[in-house]
Design a protein around this nucleic acid. Structure first.
Length: 205
DNA sequence: TGCCAGGCCCTCTTTAGGGCCTT
């Protein structure tokens, strides 16, 4: 049986025009999957027109071109739809501080917010897989021998891969704490625990 | 044309600096 975490959560990923919404960067694609009892039960993917041209670097990095975005719905419209998809579920992202900044910024533009908790797969992975050569999403997928097919830097693909990594980490944690269910609050505590205290925390569960 | 940020975490640290990670 697949280990579970707090019944249902949403794993999301943004592609953006750059690194900082405070510097005027906008989201150009949102991808997300909803996990329920360890299975993907719903998917969301949409390009969104940021109202500005994206750089050639971003076109090359993501494969999302200005031509593609010219046919896309505006950010506000897409984020309205995504807010309905997301609801009040707990959220997961790889390097969540990045996605949280864009989520807050784009939701703020349509006067919305969310009420779930955010967890970061990068912070959890740094503690669980301290010997991994890198904690980039693609490197962790390779490190854990998770089949991918290789299509990184598109939002839905990256959110699917993050979800697979998340389930793998839950599996590994459940082996350590010998429990079928891994509480979301345990994951959040784990992601804030100093690395050398991780074993103590898990063995105490 | 080229650049921009911010949170986390380690160490040659804590009155700081720099690498990792995200696009």
């Amino acid at each position: 049986m697949t280990p579970t975490c707090a019944d249902s959560l949403v794993v999301l990923d943004f592609e953006t025009t750059g690194l900082s919404p405070d510097m005027g960067d906008r989201a150009i694609e949102i991808g997300a999957v909803r996990l329920e009892k360890g299975r993907v039960v719903e998917r969301f993917q949409a390009l969104m027109n940021p109202g500005k041209r994206v750089s050639s670097f971003i076109e090359n990095y993501t494969g999302i071109t200005n031509r593609m975005l010219s046919h896309a719905a505006p950010c506000d419209e897409v984020m309205e739809q995504f807010a309905d998809f997301m609801g009040d579920h707990n959220l997961v992202a790889h390097n969540a501080s990045f996605d949280k900044r864009f989520l807050d910024a784009e939701l703020g533009r349509i006067y919305k917010s969310y009420h779930g908790d955010f967890a970061c797969s990068l912070l959890v992975a740094r503690r669980l897989y301290q010997d991994a050569p890198s904690h980039k999403l693609g490197a962790l997928i390779t490190y854990k021998n998770i089949p991918s097919g290789g299509g990184f830097h598109r939002a839905l693909f990256d959110s699917e891969m993050t979800a697979k990594l998340w389930m793998t980490m839950l599996d590994d944690i459940s082996q350590i704490i010998t429990a079928q269910d891994v509480p979301f609050r345990l994951i959040q505590t784990l992601s804030k625990t100093p690395k050398r205290g991780v074993n103590t925390l898990l063995l105490a569960e």
